[in-house]
Design a protein around this nucleic acid. Sequence first.
DNA 1: AATGAATGAGTATTCATTCAT
DNA 2: TATGAATGAATACTCATTCAT
Lengths: 223, 223, 223, 223
Amino acid sequence: MTPSGDTATNPPGTDGELSQRRRTKAPETRAAALMEAAQRLFIDKGIAATSIDDIAAGAQVAKGTFYLYFPSKEALLGALQQRFVDIFCERLQEAMDRQRPGNYHARLKAWVETGLEIYLDNVALHDVVFHEYRPEDRRMRNDNAVIAQLAGLLKQGDGAGFWDVEDATLTAVILFNALHGVADDAVATGQTGASERKRRARALTRFFEQALHPAEDEDDSAD
Amino acid sequence: MTPSGDTATNPPGTDGELSQRRRTKAPETRAAALMEAAQRLFIDKGIAATSIDDIAAGAQVAKGTFYLYFPSKEALLGALQQRFVDIFCERLQEAMDRQRPGNYHARLKAWVETGLEIYLDNVALHDVVFHEYRPEDRRMRNDNAVIAQLAGLLKQGDGAGFWDVEDATLTAVILFNALHGVADDAVATGQTGASERKRRARALTRFFEQALHPAEDEDDSAD
Amino acid sequence: MTPSGDTATNPPGTDGELSQRRRTKAPETRAAALMEAAQRLFIDKGIAATSIDDIAAGAQVAKGTFYLYFPSKEALLGALQQRFVDIFCERLQEAMDRQRPGNYHARLKAWVETGLEIYLDNVALHDVVFHEYRPEDRRMRNDNAVIAQLAGLLKQGDGAGFWDVEDATLTAVILFNALHGVADDAVATGQTGASERKRRARALTRFFEQALHPAEDEDDSAD
Amino acid sequence: MTPSGDTATNPPGTDGELSQRRRTKAPETRAAALMEAAQRLFIDKGIAATSIDDIAAGAQVAKGTFYLYFPSKEALLGALQQRFVDIFCERLQEAMDRQRPGNYHARLKAWVETGLEIYLDNVALHDVVFHEYRPEDRRMRNDNAVIAQLAGLLKQGDGAGFWDVEDATLTAVILFNALHGVADDAVATGQTGASERKRRARALTRFFEQALHPAEDEDDSAD
DNA sequence: AATGAATGAGTATTCATTCAT
DNA sequence: TATGAATGAATACTCATTCAT
C-alpha cells in the first residue's frame, strides 16, 4: 500500500545515510509517508485529535512540508478515501475474477464474502475515512465505484438470463447497503469471528439470490 | 416531528401571563424549547457552527440555563436523536397498523413506503442528527428500535408461514439498510419526487418480498 | 488615565481580597486594564511582537476575557488611538485656555509649545499608536480633532483681524504637519532637550506668525 | 520612476538570444526585474500580502534567486525607498533648474508645484514604500536628500538677501512636512483634481513666501 | 431556578529563509 | 549563478463549561 522508490532520485546507497536531514525526496515517497502516518494516527486517535504537527512528526518531516504535498488536512483525508475505495474495488474485482466468468452465483458469493471480509478487517479505517468529519461526502459519492462495479455484475447476470434485474444500479445500491449494514451490525454486536462472518455472508448471499431469481430453485450447498 | 403540548405542562392561565418575564418554567417547557431551537439551528447552520450561546438565545434563556437542562451539547444531540427515532417508529407503527394484522404483504409495503417517505421528508434533520459529529453512534445504536420493530413484523409473518425468515434481526438489518441506502441514493441523485419515491418503494418491496418467500408468487398490483 | 471604580459593583472592602480569582468586575475597569497593559507592551515590544496572550496576562485576565471587551487586537489599537488624540486635544485646549482669549499670539505660541512638548514626551506611544500596523489610518483621520481645534483658533484670529487666514483648515493642516515634522526631526537628530525644544518652538512660532500676518511687525522677545 | 536601460548592461546581441532560457544575467537586470515586480505587487496587494514567491515569480526567477540579489524582503523595500527618493529629488531639481538661477520665487514655486504633483501622482507607491511595514524609517531618514536639496535652495535665497532664513534645515523640514501634509489631506479628502492641486500649491507658496520674507511684498499673479 | 462574566485549552496555516544540488 | 524542496517559528480567536451571585 505504500509506494517506495526514491531510488531514481538519489544515487543508491547514498540515501540511507545522508538523507536523514534535509534532503529532497521523491514526491511520492513523501506523500505516501504522510498518508501512512495520517492513516495510522487517524485510526489511533481520531481525525480531530490528530494535528498536522502529529502527522508531520509521524512522517518525520517538518510541518511546512506537509503543505507541500497536501493543501489541507481535508485534502489528505480525501486522498485516503480515494485510496480506500480503490483498494476495495480492486480486491472485490480480484475475488470475482477468481471465479469462472459465467458463474454468477459464485461471483456474487465472492463479492459478498470478500466485501464483508475487507470491511470487517478495516472497520476502523473505514470509519475514520468515511464517517468522521465530512458528512457531505457520506452519500456514497466515493462508493460509486463499488456500486458501479456491482451493477456491472448484475447486468451481466441479467443479460445471461441468470438473474432477473430490473434496475441494476438501484439493486446494487440495495445490495451494497445491505452488506454495509450487516457488517456494521456485526461490529456493533461484536460478532466478527470467522464463523459469524460466514453465517452473515451466507445469509446475505441467500437473501440476494432469492431476490434476484425468484423463479429458479436456489441451493447453497458446497461452499 | 414537532413536539406539541407545551401548554399542557403548566396550569392553564399561569404560563401565559407570568412566564413572559424571567420566571421559572416547567422543566419540560424549557427543555423542549431548547431542543426546538437547537434542532432548527443545527439544520440551518450545522452542529459545529451552532454554539450553546445560539441555542440559549434561540430558546430565550441565558447560556447557563442550558446546562440546567442538558449536561452538554452532545447530550442534547442525543435527545434529538432519540426523539427522531421515537417519532420514526411511531409513524411506521401507525402506518403498519392501518393494514389488517394478517396482511403481511401490505404491512411490509406500508413499512417501506412510510419509511422512505419519512426519511426523504426529513433528510436534513436525519443527517444532522445522525451523521454529523458523532460517528460512533452511527452503528445503529439508536436505530435499534426501528430494527426491532421490523424484526417483530418479520417474525410474525414467518410464524404465520407467510414468509420464510431464518434470522429475523439480521433480515431486519438488511431491509433497514437497504431502505436507508435507497433513500440516500434518491437524495444523492436528486430523485426525490413523488413518482420516484413510488418507483423506489416498489423496487424495494418487490425485492424484499421475493427474498422473503421465494416459493410463492408475488404480485404488486393495485398500488 | 486609568479609570478605576468598580466600587459600585461590589461591596466595598470585599473586592480587595476576594476578587483575585474569577470575579465579575466593572467593564470599564477591565477594558482600561487591558488598554494599559497593551499600551505598555506595545511600546516595549512593538505591536506585532505583542500577542493577545501577553496583553491578557498583563491585565491579569484570561485570554478569552480580552475578546469580551475588544473584538480584535486592531480594535484595541483603535481605542488607544482615540484616547491618544482625545488627551492630546484636551491638553492643547487647556494650554490655550491658560492665555487670554484675545491674545492670539500667545494662544498660538501655547499651541506650538504644548504640542511639541506632548509629542516629544510621547513619541514612543505616538509612533506605536499611529505608525505601526495600520497605514490606512495614517491620513490623519484621527488627527482631525486636532486640526479642527487649530482651525478654530485660526478662524477666530482671522475674524478678529489679527491674522490673515484664507483657508483655515488648509492652514491648520500646514501648521500641524510642520509641527509634526519638526518634532520628528528633533527625535531623529536626538535634539530633544529642553533648550532644543524651545528653539524649535520659537522657530515654528516665528515662522507661523510671519506667514499669518505679513503686514504686521512681529516680535518674539521675552519668552 | 521606472528604471530604464536594462539592455545597456549587456553586450548587444548576447542578451537577446541566450538569456531567454535559464542563463546568468547581469545582476542589474535581475535586481531591477525583482524591484519592478515587487513594486507592482506591493502596490497591488500590499507588502504583507506579497510573498517572496510572488516577487520571484513576477520576475520569472526561482525563489532562491531572490536572495542572491537582496538579503531580505526588507532590504528590497529599502532599495525601493531609495529609488523613490532619488527620482523625487531628480525631478524636483529638474523643475527648479527650469527657472532662472536667481529667481528664487519661481524656484520655490516650482519646488512646491512639482512636489505636490509627484506626490499626488504616486501616492500609492509612496504609501507602500514609506508608510507600511517599517515605522522606524518614517523619521525621514530617506527623505533627507529632499530636505537637503530644499535647504540648499533656501540658503542660496538667504545668501542673496531674497529671503530671511535663520535655520535652513529646520525651515526645510517645515516646508517639506507642510507640503506632505497638504498632499495627504488632498488625498484624504479626495481633492486631487488639477484645479485643487493648483489651489493647494498656491496656498503653500503664498504661506511659505510670507513666512520667508515678511518685509517684502509678495505677489502671486500670473500663474 | 436563572444568570452571564470569566475561563483557557486547542491548531491549522503561512512564508521568509536556507542550502544541497 | 540558479534552483526549489525543506524548514519551523509564530498566533489570533472560539466556545463549551463553570460558578459566584
